[in-house]
Design a protein around this nucleic acid. Structure first.
Lengths: 310, 310
DNA sequence: AGAGAGCCATAGGTTCAGGCTATGTCCTCA
DNA sequence: TGAGGACATAGCCTGAACCTATGGCTCTCT
């Protein structure tokens, strides 16, 4: 799926959003730091590229056309994702002046951190953050050693020597391609059924694998997997090509489920494949300053709309 | 919030994703249609821009570094949003060869259509779709007149002469800035409280306004609004600057709630601010072909992860 | 009615990012 | 030891994008 040449560049989308917000090409130009004719030409270029007029120009300013309103709203989604990427990139640089050093498990760093960092950057501009990834044991080590101010781990318990708070919950899901037999299934999968089905999974030793095996122990344990792959991405790709039921973190497939490129198979209530995600810090040493602030952002916000149950 | 100059362009992000997927710069170059040296230079440019090596190069190919894996995953979000934008843009052109003509209410077109169109494009490449927006009455008219093959409306009933199916539900929410007094509120707002609070709202006559007034009738009706604004965007901006409680469609603020730039105020169970979104077609004339396919994609998929209740 | 201000479009000239081809280097495998 | 695959470098070239200066339009205020 390559992007068609009709999609404007990020800079152009940003400019369009500024025009919609400020009501004038000239003011938008000033805001993004280019000359007015440049902005004008850029918008015109977008219109040519897209094939539809986006702005109604008048001597008193410019407003989006009907189609323009749609493009603006769609573009906002792209720019917001880019801002999250930006916030993440900013945290990847090693910096001497870092005021907050975070170590997180891969799942948290991949799917939740960018949103949190973006919110933090908006709430407290100038807070330099550095981010590293590590597995849960290493995270605990770094936090205990004082290499990091705040850690994020996944798993049922808080590591010894640390205090922590659950900030979100991940959940394993079973997904199949839309054409798969189970895609139309309404009856929830029982533990027995799941345990007896060869699944496509991550390698042994991964966090998700452990959760699944733990949950299936009461049902006699899982049969050997149909396939073992090294990354969430590989799992998703396998699922889409119809390689049979795949079990992985919900966070990895939110987008695919929403656009129905993958379908979630309902699971029986008896199966609990949830896994808490925790912020951790040295016991008895309450986080202050930027760490406290980041912690505040993660509370009651999972990076995705919360699910309600019961 | 301008994007920093550290964010690579969409083309570069796409190239990076291809490298991660294919395991080689050269193969990725071939896929996106540039020469190998160009791809190599582009990746190198990204690394300089970001300030961190993204790939581990070897004579056998290239794999993302630890930081690279994070950037790849974050970039995927951006590119997927761009693909949705692309699918939307493609549907905005007026085309003679359109196989499927859709008319949708603004809320559906803005927030749900891009994902559906993307899914449709992936499932059936080459299906030319055209999209227009209209209010619910106009949508019904277009569908009845045969100007459109499929319509999407919001509101409690299916318009006369049409058959329909609920494909998703929107929900009005009350949001405030994180600094607002109510942001820390745990006790749900009662109907009486909400009715007696001056809110920031859309103008009278808008769909959301009607839903709110209907829901507050049992409590003596709403007091006059504190402010009336013309668009969801204006409402969001007002909320973020702390203009007091704002009531608008949940779909408009999913992202802001997730990153905690806005906070949802809990509402009492007694208040039902949900509003069904329906697909409609001429009564007795079941949609076939592409319309049927699109309809299939919208079922059980709300464009966002479904909420569970009870 | 006329002057001024605000906004967008056009013209002309310049710079530099990004592309391509050809070639070099390094490692692996037969 | 030679061939093949993979990434890097060199040198050249095109064109996209930017800037300044200017023009035309409409609304408003005097």
């Amino acid at each position: 799926m390559a992007l068609s040449p009709h999609v404007p560049e990020l800079g152009a989308l940003e400019l369009l959003l500024a025009v919609a917000r400020l009501g004038s090409v000239g003011r938008a130009a000033a805001e993004v730091g280019v000359s007015q004719p440049t902005a004008s030409a850029r918008i015109k270029g977008m219109e040519r590229q897209i094939g539809v007029p986006l702005l109604e120009r008048s001597p008193r300013g410019s407003r989006p056309t009907e189609a323009g309103r749609l493009v603006v709203e769609w573009a906002r989604q792209v720019v917001e994702a880019a801002q999250a990427l930006d916030a993440g990139i900013d945290a990847l640089r090693e910096r001497r002046d870092a005021k907050l050093r975070v170590v997180a498990s891969l799942t948290v760093a991949e799917y939740l951190m960018p949103g949190w960092l973006l919110a933090l950057a908006e709430a407290s501009p100038g807070t330099a953050v550095t981010l590293r990834t590590a597995n849960s044991a290493e995270v605990a080590g770094h936090v205990l050693a004082g290499d990091a101010d705040l850690g994020f781990v996944e798993g049922p318990t808080t590591p010894p020597g640390l205090a922590g708070a659950v900030v979100a919950a991940d959940r394993l899901v079973v997904v199949v391609a839309p054409g798969h037999r189970w895609a139309r299934r309404r009856a929830p999968l029982t533990g027995t059924e799941l345990a007896s089905t060869p699944l496509v999974l991550r390698e042994p030793g991964s966090g998700t694998r452990e959760v699944l095996e733990m949950a299936l122990t009461p049902y006699g344990g899982a049969v050997p997997p149909r396939m073992e792959l090294a990354s969430s991405t590989a799992l998703k790709a396998a699922a889409m090509t119809g390689a049979g039921p795949v079990c992985l973190s919900e966070l990895a497939v939110v987008e695919e489920l929403a656009t129905r490129r993958l379908v979630e198979v309902p699971l029986a209530e008896e199966l609990d494949l949830r896994r808490p995600l925790r912020a951790v810090w040295p016991a008895g040493q309450r986080p202050g300053g930027p760490a406290r602030e980041l912690l505040g952002l993660t509370r009651r916000s999972s990076g995705r709309p919360p699910r309600r149950k019961g």
